[in-house]
């Protein structure tokens, strides 16, 4: 119990002191995860919408594969990206390994299937409601994709938040491809892993408390914005 109490008071102290190193780590965490979500959304959401409206042989297999990819172990994704981005790998000439960009790529690879699978579920329900009306108005499945993405924007925000949660909580992949370099690729989760390694469990837990508070705040803000807007549009 002492350790837990110490963790919370350390967390408060860290935040109150406005420690610039902590602020930099928090800033990088947010920057990497938000960019990863944007990148993954760019691919995942249209893919999810396409799967929601398209009917083709093998579609079931694709959906099953996507759902399975949601469980892709972060370390495996990390290793994959590591081998691709390594100087000795096929994308080595860009020199991205051990940079924040590599972490963005790794997180995006991890969450793109999540965004695609969840958005497919959400949009398939909407497509059942919309399909006949949209066809009548002149939109076939292909034209329906942007329509569904826009009309599903409130539900999709929740999907994006799920992706953000997974991205910001992830440690295995960013540790492998980012290298946890102090002041450059160290984010909240790798900092927590490092302090755990050093046996400073209260500090590690305090960083965890700060991370949770940030994720909670982001979720609360986004959810509030979503609810207000959804109430406006009738949801």
């Amino acid at each position: 119990m002492d350790d837990l109490g110490a963790a919370f008071s350390t967390a408060l102290g860290l935040v109150a002191a406005g420690d610039p190193a902590l602020a930099a780590i928090v800033g990088l965490s947010l920057r990497v995860s938000v960019t990863a979500v944007a990148l993954a959304a760019f691919v995942g959401l249209p893919l999810g919408a396409l799967l929601a409206v398209a009917r083709f042989p093998g579609r079931r297999g694709v959906v099953v594969a996507l759902n399975a990819l949601m469980g892709l172990p972060p370390v495996v994704a990390g290793l994959l990206i590591y081998l691709l981005l390594s100087r000795s790998g096929p994308l080595g000439r860009f020199g991205l390994l051990f940079t924040p960009s590599a972490m963005v790529v790794a997180q995006a690879v991890l969450i793109a299937p999540i965004l695609a699978a969840l958005s497919r579920q959400v949009l398939e329900e909407m497509w059942e409601e919309y399909a006949e009306q949209l066809r009548s108005l002149g939109a076939g499945p292909r034209r329906a994709v942007p329509t569904l993405l826009w009309d599903g924007r409130f539900a999709l925000l929740t999907v994006l938040l799920a992706g953000f949660g997974r991205a910001s909580a992830e440690v295995g992949a960013v540790m492998v491809v980012g290298g946890n370099i102090e002041g450059f690729t160290r984010v909240m989760t790798t900092a927590i892993a490092l302090e755990t390694s050093k046996g400073d469990l209260p500090l590690a837990l305090a960083l965890g408390v700060v991370l949770m508070a940030i994720v909670l705040t982001v979720n609360a803000l986004a959810q509030a914005a979503r609810d207000t807007a959804a109430r406006w549009a009738g949801g």
């Binding site: 944007a38 990148l39 959304a41 924040p100």
Partner: peptide, 16 residues
């Protein structure tokens, strides 16, 4: 989204 991506790539690039 394109703008966001460009902005982030640039900010990371500045770091590098």
């Amino acid at each position: 989204r394109r703008g966001l991506l460009a902005a982030v790539v640039l900010s990371f690039a500045a770091n590098a």
